[in-house]
């Protein structure tokens, strides 16, 4: 065997081992395209199935949407008709409302005038009643004063009549004495001188100022309202009771309370209970002075 042959054998062997190594390395590291293809194919099939399912669902949804659209269109049409009817009714009701408002305003004005008139009449009635009560009180007071003056006048008239009779008797006595004196003086040739009265003439009579006296009003408690601390008494403005007066309530020798008068009528008065020592009741005595 020649040396060249040997060298060729060695080179052939080395190159074979090298190339086989490269081939084995390449084949071992090569990608498994079939596996990749199968995977991609399975994935594509799955996607196609999904697409079919989604397409089916889409078709169903489109059909449902179409049905709903038709239904809603029908409802919209019916509601539009109803809206038109309601708008026409609304216009009618609006007109009726305006008419009713005008009538309400007119009635309100009438009622307002009526209330104002009623208030004026009520105020006038109150004033008239107050004036009536005041006049009644003054009338009763004047009547009392008139009775007292009448009695006093009758007494004075009786005194005047008595004085007239006395004066007449004195004049008769004076005339008789004058005749006797004239006859006596004529016998001695003399004449009686002019008489000068010893008592001087009095001035014109003036009204006498009445002496001051204490107010001493007495009466009875007629009703008691303990809930509101109020009480009414049996005397009123005709007897001289005035607002702000205080009456002492007594029962026998016991002091019960004080009544401060806040409202006075002709024959009765109403007041507030103060300084309550015992519970007052109807029939207790009242007086301004203890």
């Amino acid at each position: 065997m020649s040396t060249l042959t040997k060298i060729l054998i060695v080179l052939l062997t080395i190159s074979s081992i090298f190339l086989c190594g490269i081939v084995v390395t390449y084949v071992a590291n090569a990608d498994n395209y079939r596996q990749m293809y199968d995977d991609l194919k399975d994935e594509r099939d799955a996607f196609e199935e999904n697409v079919k399912g989604l397409t089916k669902q889409l078709n169903e949804k489109i059909g449902e949407k179409q049905r709903l659209e038709d239904k809603l269109n029908r409802e919209i049409a019916s509601l539009t008709i109803k809206i038109e009817q309601l708008q026409s009714q609304f216009k009618i009701v609006e007109a009726e409302k305006d008419d009713a408002l005008r009538r309400v305003n007119s009635w309100a004005a009438i009622v307002r005038d009526f209330y104002e008139t009623t208030d004026e009449h009520t105020q006038l009635l109150k004033n008239t009643l107050a004036e009536k009560i005041r006049l009644e009180a003054e009338q009763i007071k004047d009547r009392k004063e008139l009775n007292e003056l009448t009695t006093s006048l009758e007494e004075k008239m009786a005194i005047i009549v008595m004085l007239d009779e006395k004066t007449k008797r004195l004049l008769e006595d004076k005339a008789e004495l004058q005749d006797r004196l004239d006859k006596y003086l004529q016998q001695i040739g003399k004449r009686a001188a002019e008489l000068v009265p010893v008592t001087p003439k009095k001035a014109i009579a003036r009204p006498v100022v009445p002496p001051a006296r204490d107010i001493e009003l007495k009466g009875l408690v007629t009703a008691v309202d303990l809930k509101n601390s109020m009480a009414s008494i049996s005397i009123g403005s005709a007897d001289g009771v005035k607002e702000g007066m205080k009456f002492h309530v007594t029962r026998g020798d016991e002091f019960i309370c004080v009544i401060l008068i806040i409202d006075v009528d002709a024959e009765e008065a109403v007041g507030v209970l103060e300084l309550i020592q015992k519970q007052p009741k109807a029939g207790d005595y009242i007086s301004t002075n203890l």
Binding site: S16, C20, V24
Partner: peptide, 20 residues
């Protein structure tokens, strides 16, 4: 010796072919 080397080279090629 060279026969063995040639046999080894043939074996390697054969094994590579089988593997591929």
């Amino acid at each position: 010796l060279y026969t063995v080397i040639l046999g080894l080279a043939c074996g390697v090629v054969l094994a590579t072919a089988v593997f591929v």
